[in-house]
């Protein structure tokens, strides 16, 4: 019944719209107009709207920055993140002026050069000089961005020197949870693979490998020491996941059959970050950022950054793999 009423209502609306349009067109024809031509009056209105839109668009942009600026991620909690944030700001300093200036030209010209029957458009079909200018200027700006970007990228992606003091953690993803394994005192992760998964050994660690014995498996949260490089190794046992740690400007996919890696140096402890963000409940998180199934939207693990002493104390409390 509701559907029938809805159909009738839609039909009536369409019919009345058709009739209205028809009457409007007959009216215009009666007044001797070629009805599909854009009239002078309409053209002026559209030209004016170009200006209105330009202002409104910029106002909307500014309003968003003002309104939502505070919701953005806080200052980077990793060493390389400070560099990428600076690179991001440099990129902004380049693209926002480009965005603003080109939009001003676009909509201002549209407004200014609206049709006027008493004026002729200028036949201006090319200018090598102009075209050279706006090929070369972007090229120079891009060269700067590319060089800066590539040097940051190389630094970020270079694995931690294994001779240096560092923490080695393997993070394993599966639908829809995370587990982690610390290398333990020998600094080496034992062999692992899906073929070893059985019962409590959910990460599939090879019991026979001597490097596995002191490995420590944790779930729910991982702890990181501040100021010490952390080398992550990522695995997945089912589909592709992505380990995303936005506060550390860190992300790497977890791919079944492939070991991936990422490293960073945490610089701000959880306690300090609570003060910076003015939020008592603040917590660093690791979340899944690659579509992985129905509960993709809720696949997370907490990260606690603390002093080296606290970290070592926490790690000592965790059971070794051999004890299980």
């Amino acid at each position: 019944m509701v559907a029938l009423v809805a159909i009738v209502a839609v039909l009536l609306i369409v019919i009345s719209a058709v009739q209205t349009l028809k009457i409007a067109e007959l009216w215009a024809i009666n007044k001797g107009k070629v009805i599909y031509e854009v009239t002078q009056k309409q053209n002026k209105v559209q030209a004016l709207l170009m200006l209105v839109f330009l202002v409104a668009y910029f106002a909307f942009f500014a309003w968003q920055v003002w309104k939502w600026g505070d919701l953005m991620l806080p200052v980077s909690a990793s060493e390389h993140g400070v560099v990428t944030d600076r690179l991001l700001n440099i990129t902004y300093a380049f693209i926002i002026p480009v965005f603003v200036i080109t939009h001003i030209f676009l909509f201002w010209f549209a407004y200014k050069y609206a049709y006027n029957p008493n004026r002729k458009a200028t036949f201006f079909s090319h200018s090598n000089k102009l075209e050279l200018v706006w090929t070369i200027i972007p090229s120079i700006a891009l060269t700067v961005l590319i060089l800066f970007g590539l040097s940051s990228w190389n630094e970020i992606m270079t694995p931690v020197d294994s001779e240096k003091e560092h923490v080695l953690i393997e993070v394993q993803a599966q639908q829809f949870s995370w587990s982690a394994r610390y290398a333990g005192a020998d600094g080496k992760l034992g062999r692992a693979g899906v073929e070893f998964i059985e019962g409590v050994n959910a990460m599939g660690v090879d019991i026979k490998d001597k490097n596995s014995k002191d490995d420590k498996i944790v779930r729910g949260e991982i702890h990181l020491p501040v100021g010490i490089p952390v080398q992550f190794v990522f695995r997945s046992i089912d589909v592709i996941h992505s380990a995303y740690m936005p506060h550390f400007r860190a992300q790497m996919n977890c791919v079944p059959g492939v070991k991936t890696q990422f490293n960073f140096v945490p610089t701000i402890t959880t306690e300090e970050m609570k003060k910076i963000t003015n939020n008592e409940d603040f917590n660093y998180i690791l979340l899944c950022n690659k579509i992985c199934g129905a509960a993709h939207y809720n696949m997370q693990m907490d990260i606690i950054v603390e002093s080296k002493e606290d970290y070592e104390k926490w790690l000592a409390e965790q059971k070794q793999f051999a004890e299980n």
């Binding site: 010209f109 050069y113 200028t122």
Partner: peptide, 26 residues
């Protein structure tokens, strides 16, 4: 990032086409 160069050229050329035109807003 190189793609930005030909893209920028296209944008500038569109804008220059509007410049001193006699624009009908269909």
């Amino acid at each position: 990032l190189l793609i930005a160069i030909p893209s920028a050229v296209k944008v500038f050329n569109y804008i220059t086409t509007l410049w001193k035109g006699n624009i009908i807003f269909s």
